[in-house]
Amino acid sequence: MMRDSKNSFGIASIFFHWVSALLTLFLFGLGAYLTSYGYYSPDYLSIAHLHYALGVILAGVIIVRLVWRLTSKTPKTLVNSVPAKIGIPLSKFLLYVFLFIILISGYLICTAEGQSINVFGLFQLPSVVLLEVEQLNIAGLTHKYVAWILMGLVLIHAGAALAHHFFLRDRTLVRMLKPSKD
């Protein structure tokens, strides 16, 4: 039950899915809050540093998740229509692509002037490139707009899972909530 099978996701895949989903949603909410909060507000820097550190943690989880996905069986899709055969892998691919774009642009924003990212006092993620003001603005806009696009895709993803559960009445959602014995 730890590993995926041809019919079910294992505990590891379920764990990676929900940890990355919850971190992504929390980081989006925190980022939206920060953009409306005001740079000179009293707690702005502590909230921003929490956002940075959690972004690094999310990057680590996503990398481990991707390695796990590439080295594990993938349970078969429960719907065999042509749109599903195209849409499901495309949406998963886009989720990863948008997450990596957001994580990379966020890293570039945080380290643009040579500062490192302190991850809860455990380690420092160093800066590897300095950005000019225009490059920093592009990274900032990319981070913001791709995050909104990602949230749209997340809504579609969640809506599709709910449609599978309530309308198609298949096990698509259930097998991402608990592993089954094949």
Rank of each mutant, 00 (worst) to 15 (best):
R3W: 15
D4N: 09
G10F: 10
S20C: 15
S20K: 12
T24R: 05
L25E: 15
F26V: 10
L27K: 10
L27E: 10
L27S: 10
F28A: 06
A32P: 00
Y33V: 03
Y39S: 07
Y40V: 08
H51L: 01
A53H: 01
G60H: 06
V61P: 05
I63S: 05
V67F: 00
L70K: 03
S72D: 09
K73D: 00
P75D: 05
P75Y: 04
K76F: 12
N80H: 00
P83L: 08
A84H: 10
F93S: 06
Y96W: 12
V97G: 07
Y107S: 01
L108S: 03
I109Y: 04
I109H: 01
G114T: 05
Q115R: 13
I117K: 01
F123M: 00
V128H: 04
V133F: 12
E134P: 02
L136H: 12
N137M: 13
W148P: 00
I156M: 12
I156Y: 13
I156T: 09
H157P: 07
H157D: 11
A158I: 14
A158Q: 09
L162H: 04
A163E: 09
H164Y: 13
H164P: 08
H165N: 06
F166Y: 14
R169D: 08
R169H: 10
D170P: 12
R171Y: 05
R175I: 05
L177T: 07
K178R: 13
K178Q: 11
P179E: 09
P179Y: 09
S180F: 14
